[in-house]
Amino acid sequence: MTLPSLFVPHGGGPCFFMDPAGGPPDAMWRPMQAYLAGLIASLPERPRAILLVSGHWEEDDITMHFGNGQPLMYDYSGFPAHTYHLQWPAPGAPDVARRAGELLAASGFPVREESVRGWDHGVFIPMMVAVPGADIPLAQMSLRKDLDPAAHIAIGRALAPLRDEGVLIIGSGMSFHNLRARGPQVTPVADQWDAALTAAVTDPDPAARTERVIRWEELPHARFAHPEAEHLLPLMVALGAGGDDPGVCDYRDHVLGWTVSGYRFG
């Protein structure tokens, strides 16, 4: 059975786990938490492994992590002390990392390997919600530092066979990510950006969809929504892995005044 590929929001820092007693997050984050919590149940079958690309890891060439992501990388600052002791001890998936590397190499992409980097919060924060039992192996893949949209879509296309091999491909980022712009005054602009992005991502024509997303900087308020593009590029990988399968927006909400969406292909 073919699994979909996903682009999911990973929230802000450890936003779902701010209560040291383990209580629910701030009400603003609860719809996103519920969306993430329902991801695995929404799939046609439980994946045997996850391949995840996070907006928090960039390398000159695509790099595959062959370890188990431990110790975790608490790459956020200014949060309560207990959030620097969160744990998500899922096993690594070196077989998936190896297979992904082979697929990418066969498509002409240089691939590097490493095994000591911890999983960043773009991995473990959403996965603590989506897979709380930490019982699905995971391999992390980097972005390329050039953040080339067309290249990352092609990278996703190369990885598409994994969807038929029980591997769930997840791009983890944020569809709006401007840390200098927050509050209700941002929302009208964020809504316009989100509507344009969603129209591009859900274009029923696969070729037109690809072209529109490659040219994302031409969409309204694009560089306001993403002064830097690293949180958007995981979407390109998910879209590429989706191939000709239609894109749908399966999550949309407002946090911090931002309009934030999640997308599914297949």
Rank of each mutant, 00 (worst) to 15 (best):
D95E: 15
G23M: 08
R48V: 09
A49V: 05
L138R: 10
F66W: 02
A37P: 04
H10F: 10
L256R: 14
R252Y: 02
M174E: 01
W29M: 14
E165N: 06
D203F: 12
H121E: 09
Q87E: 15
A195V: 08
G55S: 13
G247K: 11
T83Y: 00
H221E: 09
L159C: 11
A150S: 08
I214Y: 14
G240K: 07
G247P: 04
A190L: 01
D194K: 06
R117I: 10
L72Q: 12
P227S: 05
L52V: 14
P246Q: 03
D203N: 14
V201S: 00
H85G: 12
Y84G: 05
A41L: 05
D191T: 01
L143T: 08
V116K: 14
G23S: 12
P31M: 08
R117D: 04
D191S: 10
D250N: 11
H85N: 13
S5R: 11
C249L: 03
H121L: 02
W258E: 04
P206G: 08
A225H: 02
E228L: 11
L239Y: 00
I136M: 03
F17V: 01
R99K: 09
C249K: 12
A90W: 01
A158R: 03
A195C: 00
V8Q: 07
L6S: 01
T210R: 15
P20S: 10
H10M: 09
I40G: 00
L86D: 03
A190G: 06
R215N: 15
T2E: 13
W193M: 07
M32Q: 13
H121C: 00
G133Y: 07
F79Y: 15
I62D: 03
P14L: 06
D61Q: 14
E58F: 02
G101R: 04
A160P: 02
G240W: 12
F79W: 14
L51P: 06
D19I: 12
A154K: 12
T63I: 03
R46V: 04
P94Q: 11
G92F: 01
H56I: 05
D135T: 07
M73L: 15
E165I: 08
P20N: 00
A158D: 09
A134Q: 06
Q70A: 15
H152K: 01
E217T: 14
A41C: 05
V53K: 09
G240D: 09
R144G: 01
W258Y: 05
F17E: 05
R99S: 11
Y74A: 09
A90C: 05
G11E: 09
L197G: 11
Y263E: 04
D253P: 09
L162W: 11
P44T: 09
G171V: 10
N68Q: 13
H254K: 13
D75G: 04
T2A: 10
A200V: 11
A196P: 03
F17D: 13
L168K: 01
A160F: 05
V201F: 04
L233G: 00
D120I: 02
D164I: 09
D253C: 11
V248N: 05
A200L: 07
G173H: 03
M141K: 04
